[in-house]
Design a protein around this nucleic acid. Sequence first.
DNA 1: ATGTCCCTTCACAAGGGA
Length: 257
Amino acid sequence: MRFATWNVNSVKARLPRLLEWLAETRPDVLCLQETKVPQGDFPSAEVSELGYQTAEYGQGRWNGVALLSRVGLEDVRNGFAGEPGYPDPEARAISALCDGIRFMSVYVPNGRTPDDPHYTYKLSWLSALRTALQDDVAAGPVVVAGDFNVAPTDADVWDRAAFAGSTHVTVPEREALEKIRGLGFTDIPARPLKGDRPFTYWDYRAGMFHKNMGMRIDLVYATADLAGAVKDAVVDREARKGKGPSDHAPIVVDLDR
DNA sequence: ATGTCCCTTCACAAGGGA
């Protein structure tokens, strides 16, 4: 099985790139984030021509997550039990069973700055996610993949000094991820296709991509049975190149299963 | 680092978010 995760930064703006990438990469399951389309506006017809079923959890202008699968899509859940809002619920998580594995696509709140209420929301959201995942982990194999908006270690940002006082690198954010891993998840290491660090995000500005000034904030968390079956995992930085890319690159994981 | 992109609307320019 091959699965992937990708923050596309608007599925409408990215549709040509998405379709081209799907036809080339052919994941069995794809976790999408930041679709930025209201519920019902996901281009399901276009992806169905490539053999994919769609489950979408959309919202007006921001957020939005989706799952694409060509190996089944059952027991779809928008959001999770106990998920906080800001203050209303936001479209940040969707999960479903695909070929016996529960896949959850997540778009963790950004947090903005450490003194912003949005940062508190981010920590609450991650804590509630951990609680909700307990039942899923007890039920069978689980993959939680997406834009976590946290760099797990200092090695996961291009320059730790540049992030002094910023979100994404604070101890409470990192501890929140550690607690999620404590449920039995492994942070699946992905190979960078260039350079020594598997960054997944590069700001559009200032030529950050070309200077490889990136961050590893898109992550794949898999339970032990699946982590042991990983044959290969790569950050597809090719998808960050060329005309009209997302600011995030996909992570592609191959399982011996 | 703040050099872009994407969304929206009291829309053809500007603000918000990332």
